[in-house]
Design a protein around this nucleic acid. Structure first.
Lengths: 245, 245
DNA sequence: CGGTTGATTGAGGCTGCTCAAAAGGTGTGG
DNA sequence: CCACACCTTTTGAGCAGCCTCAATCAACCG
């Protein structure tokens, strides 16, 4: 049944469905239940706030296109980036599902965000066990990623931290089909932001990036990452991609 | 309908049900679906391995009584404690739900662990949307706790880290009814293990604990924690308990 | 009482931080 | 097309929080 491309016939596959289908097989009924998120979606410019700490959007906000990150800011200026969000990831939510956000979310690039009202989201989960299971599995993978960050911040040295984060992102970008033809990928973080994800200052991040560049391991410029020697980078980071799936 | 205390009539309330009921209201049907975990449970001595990294237990292992922790070990001896597990928490699982464990789990005290076969667990989730939702909410809280650890490790100084972790544990212990009559609680970690949770060496952990003790903030000895000045400790840690529920 | 584990103390060193400034890039307005 | 502002990257110098190595002390246990 090729090309049912009449307008409004079949909702276009969106990043959320694509991601959840990594964890479960959905029937057409379930795909329709998640529905046409394009309809509710909105484009956001780079660097804009999607969720502010303390917000209660009363909805679930999946990221359909573009990149974003969660972050926690201190009053005194310290800032920690908590996670990088790729298409299919859920930026956050609240309402019946959870309390007000304990973090903010910002777009890294032009990004498209959908909006599923909390009550509707819960109704979907109640009605479709396959979706509930996929969400649980997806949450478990997200926990594994967070554990990897805990290990990174708690035990690894600066160059190991950078290496590990870039290995993780490279894999996740690949899963999202976001690796460019020449093998690099777009990651429009400043060195200051990269440092905030790694628990390092921008000064130190800069110096270590220069070392890694000098060793022909990676390149990080203009918001594009090139990994020149993946095996050596993975060895340096002690990276094992098993946790990402 | 008081006291149906005939043998094998109503499964005794267990810590897993108690925890999930913080997130949803269960009917008797749902409580029975989770079932009598006592039957499948086993006591484990302190300091024993419950899950070994790389394991695939093909089951979900809820902690019913006692304390445990997840940890990741490096070949070179570095170790990071990833989370503290209290009664009601799920130590881990694998099988259809997730890949092999990327972490190990050890008991901190005498502990009772239940075992729910993966296939059975998935059947329960499929059949009971209320349980699925409670699991999702529970996973979201666990993610929030992990984010707090990321912030701790990435941005806070040693004394702030210790303060924040103890605030978190005090709250969670209280939720589990594990705060002792005199206000303290049992946390049988060595200073070395506490350091492993905080990304610090045991030597530095020791010195900072002495400072906090000297400032009349806390006491940490013989596996028992006393918080002498909770408001000041929370201020030091910039602790806000909202994320724990 | 020796052995083991954990807490404590000391001295010295390194990773990563702070403060400060300069250099390079980019967009805007005159 | 230049001047200017702004942001990011880069570099330098000095400092400090935390680490490493090592030894001692205290408690518990067979």
């Amino acid at each position: 049944m090729p090309d049912p491309s009449g307008p409004n016939s079949v909702p276009s596959a969106n990043a959320l469905i694509t991601k959840l289908e990594r964890f479960a097989t959905f029937s057409e009924v379930e795909r329709e239940a998640i529905g046409d998120l394009d309809a509710s979606s909105e484009w956001i410019a780079p660097g804009k706030s999607i969720i502010t700490a303390g917000d209660s959007p009363e909805a679930v906000l999946p990221l359909l296109e573009g990149l974003a990150y969660r972050h926690k800011d201190f009053r005194d200026g310290r800032r920690q980036i908590l996670s990088l969000l790729l298409p299919g990831d859920i930026c956050g939510g609240s309402g019946e599902l959870s309390g007000p956000a304990d973090y903010g979310v910002r777009s890294l690039s032009r990004a498209r965000i959908a909006r599923i009202e909390s009550a509707h989201f819960i109704a979907i989960v109640r009605a479709h066990p396959a979706i509930a299971l996929a969400l649980i599995k997806s949450a478990l993978v997200e926990q594994a990623i967070q554990r990897a960050w805990i290990v990174n911040l708690g035990q690894r040295h600066a160059h190991e931290r950078i290496a590990h984060l870039l290995c993780e992102v490279a894999h996740r970008m690949n899963d999202c089909g976001l690796v460019l033809s020449h093998g690099g990928f777009e990651l429009p973080l400043t060195q200051h932001e990269l440092g905030s994800a790694l628990g390092l200052t921008s000064v130190h991040t800069n110096r270590v990036l220069q070392q890694l560049r000098a060793e022909q391991l990676i390149e990080f410029q203009g918001g594009v990452v090139h990994i020149h020697d993946a095996p050596r980078l993975q060895a340096l980071a002690d990276f094992d991609p098993a946790y990402l799936s």
